[in-house]
Amino acid sequence: MVKINGQPAEAAGKTVAQIVEEQGLNVQRVAVELNGDIVKRSDFDKVVVKEDDSMEIVNFVGGG
């Protein structure tokens, strides 16, 4: 299991980009932290999430 925003998820083996897109989110509007480190957008397609990894995905909305 992978933890995404505190919830268990079947996501091991997927890239960060895949996980973001499967959640219905826009890669241009999120910030992703994996095991305590920020993942750069340019690495979303390269970083593969492993079993027991912990991810935080922040989805930003417009307005300010």
């Binding site: 509007r29 930003f60 417009g62 307005g63 300010g64």
Partner: peptide, 8 residues
Amino acid sequence: FDKADQKA
């Protein structure tokens, strides 16, 4: 900021 992509 105002725009979500700028926040990101």
